[in-house]
Design a protein around this nucleic acid. Structure first.
Length: 429
RNA sequence: GGACAGGUGGCCGAGUGGUCGAAGGCGCACGCCUGGAAAGUGUGUAGGCGGGGAACCGUCUCGAGGGUUCGAAUCCCUCUCUGUCCGCCA
């Protein structure tokens, strides 16, 4: 959410930044509403102050036993009561309207972000590893002989419908190994704190990390009003909602493995085969809470944490900076990591690392205090480290052999009881 | 799911209709004291919003929302969270 004061101080800059996202300037409307709102607040509070003063006089009259004066004043105050309540309500309505408008506007891109309309304008900043040369045509993950017995879409469809999967045997062991490997690496090498959180959350939490109000159709809601998190960014980030942290407590760097739930509304027909895009998947998420001036450094650090996972797994990838037109709603700056998928002969997104600046903190009212200072909003960052299902796909496709077996990365072997590959018949070997 | 007890400032805790944003304590900050420290001692110490150049002023907030009242931390209603016991249960 945006700071109305910043818009007031420099509406031109605000509109200019919005236009870089391809949106029309709205500052004049917002400022008009803000002016009306402030005038109404002033009017209502001035009336309320008079009312409060009068009430004290009523009390004083009563205290000295002046019954006639007491009754006279009481009647007087009573008369204006309704009118003041009306004014206060109007002021509150104006305030809520402004908040609603502000909460539906996306974050502003940093100056350094490349301009662009869509993903074709993203800029590659880093590339690691060389795609393997296959002496056969590499298959997609669900076509590999050794994978097929362990990746069961038919049973999943019976249970739940499309965009679900049942995993078995070697495949699920590799999936589980990947998640454990990621967490262990983050905890041990990257000094992140592991957290386990609920996947059902209240509406406030979804508002805090900007899933609501604008993107309600992307997530699932239970009959009693809970929401299923689309990412544990929601729970990790909102864990500091409403807090005023000591500056010395920052940065807070967290990681969590969780189930994620997405309706995938609007992606009908995209990635319908395989387990690239599912309604339910696992992800190791990273979230950092820090001071705004350290956010960009933390952003690079977090990007490095995600990259390290891919490098240890030996998976070729590239890192891109998203252009203004492709960035997510809450981001000021985003790095996407795209892993090489030989079966698709292309790089596909496996991690998205964003800094939101103070955007989410303002929604959540999450603040910190410098010694003796006033509370200030924290900065929040989030990134996948990594999406486990997509990483599984990458491991399977990159490690596949001509005979339908899959060689597995060495760092996973300890998590697999020393086994090193999936044989063509689907067993761990 | 049932019963009971509770949610007050950074923390503990007093406060059953007015002068209470709120005693007292702890913690913290600054000062005094000291060679230095401890102890002692003095002062200060919530946040949001609005007005103002500022000093400062107003308004709202005692879990949340509504109600009663001229006036609510205090009374009523709903919700929520926490604790304890019972039930159920991975």
């Amino acid at each position: 959410m945006h700071d109305i004061r910043a818009i007031r101080e420099n509406p031109e800059a605000f509109d200019a930044a919005l236009s870089r996202r391809g949106l029309a300037g709205v500052s004049s409307d917002i400022l008009a509403l803000d002016a009306a709102r402030r005038a109404k607040i002033l009017e209502a509070e001035t009336a309320q102050a008079a009312q409060n003063a009068a009430s004290k006089e009523v009390g004083a009259a009563k205290a000295r036993g002046d019954t006639a004066e007491f009754e006279r004043l009481r009647a007087l105050v009573s008369e204006t009561k309704a009118a003041i309540a009306q004014l206060m309500e109007e002021a509150a309505t104006q305030d809520a309207r402004l908040r609603d408008i502000l909460s539906r506007l996306p974050n502003l891109p940093l100056d350094q972000i490349p301009d662009g309309r869509d993903e074709s304008d993203n800029v590659e900043i880093h590339r690691w590893g060389n795609p393997r040369n296959f002496d056969f045509t590499p298959k997609e993950h669900f076509e590999i002989a050794g994978v097929k017995p362990g990746m069961d879409f038919a049973t999943a469809a019976k249970l739940s419908g499309s965009r679900f999967v049942v995993l078995r045997g070697a495949v699920i062991r590799v999936h589980r190994a990947l998640a454990q490997f990621m967490l262990d690496t983050h905890i041990t090498d990257h000094d992140l704190q592991e957290v386990w959180t609920p996947v059902l959350v209240k509406e406030d939490a979804m508002f805090g990390t900007n899933q609501l109000p604008k993107f309600a159709e992307d997530s699932y809601q239970t009959t009693n009003g809970w929401w299923l998190i689309p990412t544990s960014e929601v729970t990790l980030t909102n864990s500091v909602a409403g807090d005023i942290l000591e500056e010395s407590a920052l940065p807070i760097r967290m990681t969590a493995l969780s189930q994620c739930f997405r309706s995938e509304a609007g992606s009908a027909g995209k990635d319908t085969t395989g387990m690239l895009r599912q309604h339910q998947f696992e992800k190791v998420e990273m979230v950092t809470i820090c001071t705004p001036d350290t956010a960009l450094a933390e952003h690079d650090r977090m990007t490095g944490c995600a990259q390290a996972i891919l490098e240890k797994l030996g998976l070729p990838y590239r890192t891109i900076v998203l252009c203004t037109g492709d960035m997510g709603f809450g981001a000021q700056k985003t790095h996407d990591l795209e892993v090489w998928l030989p079966g698709q002969n292309t790089y596909r997104e496996i991690s998205s690392v964003s800094t939101c600046g103070e955007f989410q903190a303002r929604r959540m009212n999450a603040r910190f205090r410098q010694p003796g200072g006033k509370p200030e909003f924290v900065a929040t960052l989030n990134g996948s480290g990594l999406a486990v299902g997509r990483c599984l796909i990458a491991v399977l496709e990159n490690g596949q052999q001509a005979d339908g077996s899959v060689d597995l990365p060495a760092v996973l072997h300890p998590y697999l009881g020393g086994k090193t590959r999936i044989a063509a018949d689907g067993t761990l070997a």
